[in-house]
């Protein structure tokens, strides 16, 4: 671990300020500290935001505003979340372990870094860790890697479950910039695809602090989160699907679908959703949706199976979301 300076932020504005040059926020620390031990992250300064008063869940006119320091555990057990956004509660509970969820925060979860094996092995080539060094995963052991959205420079997947649910719920991220201004970033625009610069993972500016995540009213009460993984618990998603839908007179009135385990960012493809809307659910329709989702999917050997798996999981999730006539 590289020596670093530690500062406890007293308010959000000061935190953003402290983090501008070479500083890093630390919230739950469950991801950052592991990376610092391996010197994959080596900030000169840690800005501890964990005591800022950003840990509240408040109702808004239509939805919810979730402070960035709300822990994953608290968010998953919140009554309004369980009632109106069950897909979120389920996604969170499908992630990590009880101990980690007790520490992990909303903002930290969104900004956790990939679990690519080679990223975690300092002696391996990795463009994300060391730009320009190559990508050991491309023709290596890439069983957990992306089949969508990757580039020849990086095929790592974003590991968060929570982010997948938030994406299906049309969440927005509220931030504070070091100059004191704030902005709202739709979750779909928070993460970037690797392209030529896999080490740049988000659209946040240096020192930009996530303050809250805002949820609009859900578009439907048919909500499903399905995570497919190697163990019954405590394993990252190989494929995950979050679905939020509503039905009217036997037809799909609205649908939001987001995917984990498939791409370098929580994945959404609006064409898939558009194709479903207004139609009667059927296995054929679901297969068509999967065709659209996976049209450009590409395996790299060990992860080829994810394409079949994503197809089958999507169809099963759609069937579940559309079943019954409530």
């Amino acid at each position: 671990m590289r020596p670093f300076e530690y500062q406890r932020a007293t308010d959000a504005g000061q935190a953003a300020d402290l983090a501008v040059a070479g500083g890093r926020f630390i919230a739950g620390g469950t991801n950052l500290l592991d990376l610092m031990k391996l010197e994959i992250e080596a900030p000169r300064r840690l800005v501890d935001i964990s005591r800022l008063p950003l840990d509240r869940i408040e109702p808004t006119d239509e939805g919810l505003r979730i402070g960035t320091l709300v822990t994953n555990s608290d968010l998953a057990r919140h009554a309004a979340v369980r009632r109106d956004y069950p897909v979120l509660a389920r996604a969170i509970l499908a992630g990590a372990s009880g101990q980690i969820r007790n520490k992990a925060t909303t903002g930290g979860n969104l900004l956790q870094r990939t679990r690519c094996y080679y990223f975690y092995e300092p002696s391996a080539a990795c463009n994300k860790r060391e730009p320009g060094s190559g990508c050991a995963a491309l023709d290596g052991f890439n069983r957990i890697h992306a089949v969508l959205g990757g580039s020849e420079n990086c095929i790592a997947v974003h590991p968060s479950d929570m982010a997948v649910a938030l994406l299906a719920l049309d969440a927005t991220v509220e931030t504070l910039l070091p100059d004191g201004s704030s902005r709202e970033i739709p979750l779909a625009e928070l993460h970037r695809l690797p392209g030529e610069t896999p080490h740049i993972e988000t659209t946040l500016e240096p020192g930009e602090l996530i303050v809250a995540v805002v949820l609009p009213a859900p578009i439907g009460d048919r909500q499903v989160y399905r995570k497919v993984r190697d163990r019954a618990s405590y394993a990252f998603a190989l494929v995950s699907v979050a679905a939020v839908a509503s039905m009217e007179e036997g037809r799909i009135a609205a649908a939001r679908l987001a995917f984990g385990g498939l791409a370098p960012k929580p994945w959404r493809n609006e064409k898939v959703e558009a194709h479903l809307v207004g139609k009667e659910p059927s296995p054929t329709l679901f297969e068509e949706a999967a065709d659209l989702l996976l049209a450009e999917a590409r395996g790299h050997g060990a992860n080829d199976f994810k394409i079949t798996l994503a197809r089958r999981t999507l169809c099963a999730v759609l069937a579940e979301a559309c079943q019954g006539d409530k």
Binding site: Y117, Y120, A136, G140, I144, A232, S233, Y234
Partner: peptide
């Protein structure tokens, strides 16, 4: 069901050398 210490056949690296990716059964299994 889960345990496999993966050897990278290009260079001999033991790829999944931590408890997050070397999967021993957890309670839920």
């Amino acid at each position: 069901l889960t345990e496999e210490l993966v050897i990278d056949d290009r260079n001999g690296l033991l790829v999944n050398h931590d408890l997050a990716e070397y999967h021993v059964p957890v309670n839920a299994d």
